[in-house]
């Protein structure tokens, strides 16, 4: 047998064999998955006023300062969620993302399916940062909607709003006024006049929230659904009565007003349910 004479035929057979080997598995196959030693958690976000689900665009609420008000929009960030295990060891949720954006008008943001594999066990409590910590709060890090509209002007400290609550209140003359209850990086000004040129320092207003009643048990392979409730009225009361007639509708450049909001914010969040 002359090899050269049969070379094309042999090569053809080899080629087709290789092609068939490659082509046989048309459909991708799922890899074998070992039984997980972990579980998952899912956060959901609810928003109440006076223990009832918030109703937007209705002048039906009154704060402790006596201001009738309505709520039109609620948007905010939470970050650095930590799950504390028995014994005090904390597990930071950051395998995929560590900042979550919530907007009342966008249902998909009201659920956070956490990517991280959470070791099974008993957890004592949950904490998170309201807003974004200084080292992570960089301007232009969000370039897409909806987060991009939360940008905080560089001249006021940069980064992103921690929260926007927009709405209206009735002033002393029963006239509707717009308010933008916005929290973010604060500014300290020389003198009494608020203008950009007199800013001499910035104040990081983010704070850590410890959720009461947030202990839970996670079994391996289980997904626990944890509802976090924002009690919106609490931004305007305890320990301070926030008076719109005093502070006005825009507080981004008024650090004392934001400070009051921050101090009121420590008890704004609670656990609704853990399923």
């Amino acid at each position: 047998m002359r090899i050269s004479k049969n070379l094309p035929a042999i090569t053809l057979i080899v080629m087709w064999g290789l092609m068939l080997l490659t082509a046989c598995s048309d459909e991708p196959e799922g890899g074998a998955e070992p039984e997980p030693e972990t579980g998952h958690i899912k956060f959901t976000f609810a928003h109440n006023v006076d223990n009832q689900p918030v109703q937007l665009d209705r002048m039906m609420y009154e704060n402790s300062a006596g201001n009738p008000y309505e709520i039109n929009e609620v948007m905010y960030f939470i970050s650095d969620v930590i799950l504390y295990k028995e014994g005090g060891r904390g597990l930071l949720i950051d395998d995929w993302k560590d900042i979550h954006y919530v907007e009342l008008a966008i249902p998909s943001t009201l659920t956070w399916e956490v990517f991280d594999d959470i070791p099974a066990g008993t957890y004592d409590s949950i904490t998170f940062v309201f807003g974004i910590p200084e080292e992570k709060n960089e301007s232009f890090m969000f370039v897409n909607p909806p987060e991009d509209k939360m940008m905080w002007p560089d001249i006021l400290g940069g980064g992103y709003h921690y929260m926007m609550i927009n709405g209206k209140w009735l002033d002393e003359n029963e006239i509707e006024q717009f308010y933008n209850f916005h929290l973010g990086i604060g500014q300290l000004y020389h003198g009494d006049e608020i203008n950009f040129d007199s800013i001499y320092a910035f104040v990081q207003n983010y704070f850590t929230v410890s959720l009461p009643g947030s202990s839970f048990v996670l079994n391996k392979g289980q997904t626990r659904e944890i509802e976090i409730v924002m009690n919106i009225e609490s931004w305007f009361e305890t320990p301070h009565d926030f008076d719109f007639n005093y502070w006005g509708g825009a507080i981004m450049e008024i650090q004392p007003a934001m400070k009051m909001g921050v101090e009121n914010g420590h008890d704004v969040f609670s656990i609704g349910s853990i399923k």
């Binding site: 598995s25 459909e27 991708p28 196959e29 890899g31 995929w96 956070w112 956490v114 990517f115």
Partner: peptide
């Protein structure tokens, strides 16, 4: 062999390995 990321509501929620993709 390749990793497929499971996306729900525009967010990555899980990852699985796929063969012969």
């Amino acid at each position: 062999e390749v990793t497929k990321y499971i996306i729900s509501d525009g967010e990555v929620v899980d990852a699985v390995q796929i063969t012969n993709d």
